[in-house]
């Protein structure tokens, strides 16, 4: 199983760094290859430290590698679309298509159907969007694509709010997080708890061939999942957590660190599922309490004192409970598997 723990090989940095001079070329990540595709090339206008730019390059470079470049990408409206294609420039180094905010799953379905009718079955289709385009605006089209089992890999880059339009809440925004529309006022400051959606679970409920989550802090796992997804046909869904320095109020240098902490706290479960059943989980290597993740983000700063001590104990405990439940539910710890 690809998401099972990859046995640690000892090359000074084990299997965790991007590459290694001591590892043979065929066992390095695609990102360590000086000839990598750079699907999303330099000059894009993403903010410094953008997790989404990183996640998109990781995922599409891996997909390009396994399809030998026979790949088309369809993009929903969102940060990724805006920062990569201000006319007349494009950062995309693969065929890339944008139509509307809501319809990227449908457009991708159409592209796949068109290629099939042209007899170009070797050309594969990826659709991608942010959490807004996926969980809110494109939800209906996405559910339809799943339900019809169209031959598309849909990738959601989840930065947990509408960052492009000024950090408004989406249905992927976590409880207590401050956004422009969930201000730090009233009895329960920040976003409410108990609402929103976790799209990977919705995708699993459609019993499509493959559903997986990944993060930009775990490149080896991310690439393995893209390869696994591209080895299959039918509707597939990959959900990648991509920290946003602007919307989260974090240091631009902390993007990967936050992604790692989201994994290691249990707040972002990393797993994969086939036909609706959980088939593999990435176990937590060094478990940490949620405050270590929350403290680095200004959107949660109302939970802490100026000195960084937990101020809102009840809310932090509530977030910790979510992490603990994830660990049980997605078997993120060897003790509960």
């Amino acid at each position: 199983m690809s998401a099972e723990r990859v046995p640690v090989r000892f090359y000074q940095v084990g299997s965790f760094a991007v590459g290694n001079r001591l590892v043979s070329a065929d066992r390095r990540n695609a990102q360590s290859d000086p000839q990598r595709a750079n699907s999303l090339t330099s000059g894009h206008r993403a903010c410094a430290g953008c997790g989404e730019a990183l996640g998109a390059r990781y995922a599409l470079d891996a997909a390009t590698r396994v399809t030998n470049g026979q790949l088309v990408a369809v993009n929903a409206t969102g940060c990724l679309e805006v920062f990569s294609t201000p006319y007349p420039e494009t950062s995309w180094q693969l065929p890339w298509l944008h139509s509307l905010f809501a319809n990227s799953p449908s457009v991708a379905t159409g592209v796949a159907a068109g290629l099939r009718s042209l007899g170009k079955s070797e050309v594969r289709v990826v659709a991608q969007g942010g959490d807004g385009g996926t969980a809110d605006i494109g939800m209906g089209a996405l559910s339809g694509m799943f339900e019809r089992n169209d031959d598309v890999l849909y990738i959601c880059y989840d930065n947990e709010a509408y960052m492009n339009t000024g950090v408004q809440r989406s249905s992927a925004t976590p409880g207590a997080a401050r956004t422009a529309t969930t201000d730090v006022v009233g009895e329960h400051p920040g976003n409410v708890f108990g609402t929103g959606k976790f799209v990977p679970a919705i995708a699993m409920a459609h019993e499509i061939p493959y559903v997986a989550t990944a993060s930009v802090a775990d490149l080896f796992d991310l690439e393995t999942k893209v390869e696994r997804a591209m080895s299959m046909h039918g509707a597939r869904y990959l959900h990648i957590l991509v920290p946003c320095p602007l919307g989260w109020g974090s240091a631009s240098s902390d993007t990967i660190r936050l992604s790692r902490l989201a994994e290691e706290t249990g707040l972002f479960p990393v797993f994969e599922a086939e036909n609706g059943e959980l088939t593999g989980s990435r176990t937590i290597r060094h478990r940490v309490p949620v405050e270590e993740y929350l403290r680095l983000q200004r959107r949660f700063s109302h939970l802490f004192t100026r000195e960084g001590e937990v101020k809102d104990v009840a809310t932090v405990a509530r977030i910790q409970a979510i992490a603990d439940r994830n660990i049980r539910r997605y078997r993120l710890s060897e003790e509960v598997s």
Partner: peptide, 30 residues
Amino acid sequence: ARRCLSCGNCFECDNCFGVCPDNAVIKLGA
């Protein structure tokens, strides 16, 4: 020997090359 952390000096793990969101690291080769 491979337990050495190579403190403070590059040992060519490709991490900087991989993690840059702007492809602004050039890998010069072994």
